[in-house]
């Protein structure tokens, strides 16, 4: 069962990562940004925007399946930890740099997400005692 959760969390992260990378490719190829039909046409006339949709739909169904079985705390954390995978991939795909502020910011954010995940876990463990 543990292996099932782990696979589910990784799948959720993979779908979220696919979405973010697709969003970036879609946005980059639709530049310059403008509140216009022209920009919307540029966004929807290349395949990346549909990659983002696939990632969203996949993440939605994975999340729903996970929530049925997996503990909520780790599921919550897993649904937000794609920041790490996206950061690492953007070094490779977009030649971005892991600057010091980004690394420090990411460490604080991940620590915060872990706290929030732990908070969820505690609450749901504590619930039967309250009832």
């Amino acid at each position: 069962m543990k292996r099932f959760y782990l696979f589910g969390f990784l799948l959720l992260m993979a779908f979220d990562t696919l979405s973010q990378i697709s969003f970036k490719y879609a946005g980059d190829s639709a530049l310059p940004v403008a509140a216009s039909i022209g920009w919307l046409t540029r966004v929807f006339s290349q395949p990346w925007v549909y990659g983002a949709v696939v990632g969203y739909v996949g993440a939605f169904f994975t999340w729903m399946a996970l929530l049925k079985h997996a503990p909520i705390g780790p599921a919550f954390a897993a649904s937000h930890l794609e920041v790490v995978s996206v950061m690492l991939l953007s070094v490779w795909l977009f030649d971005e740099h892991l600057t010091l502020p980004r690394v420090l910011g990411a460490i604080a954010i991940v620590a915060g997400i872990v706290c929030l995940g732990l908070a969820e876990s505690r609450e749901h463990v504590a619930e039967p005692a309250d009832a």
Binding site: F23, V33, V83, V86, M87, S90, A106, I109
Partner: peptide
């Protein structure tokens, strides 16, 4: 939003 700044910064 993401098209105007690096992706790593945007997601953070």
């Amino acid at each position: 939003f993401l098209s105007l700044l690096p992706l790593s910064e945007g997601v953070l």
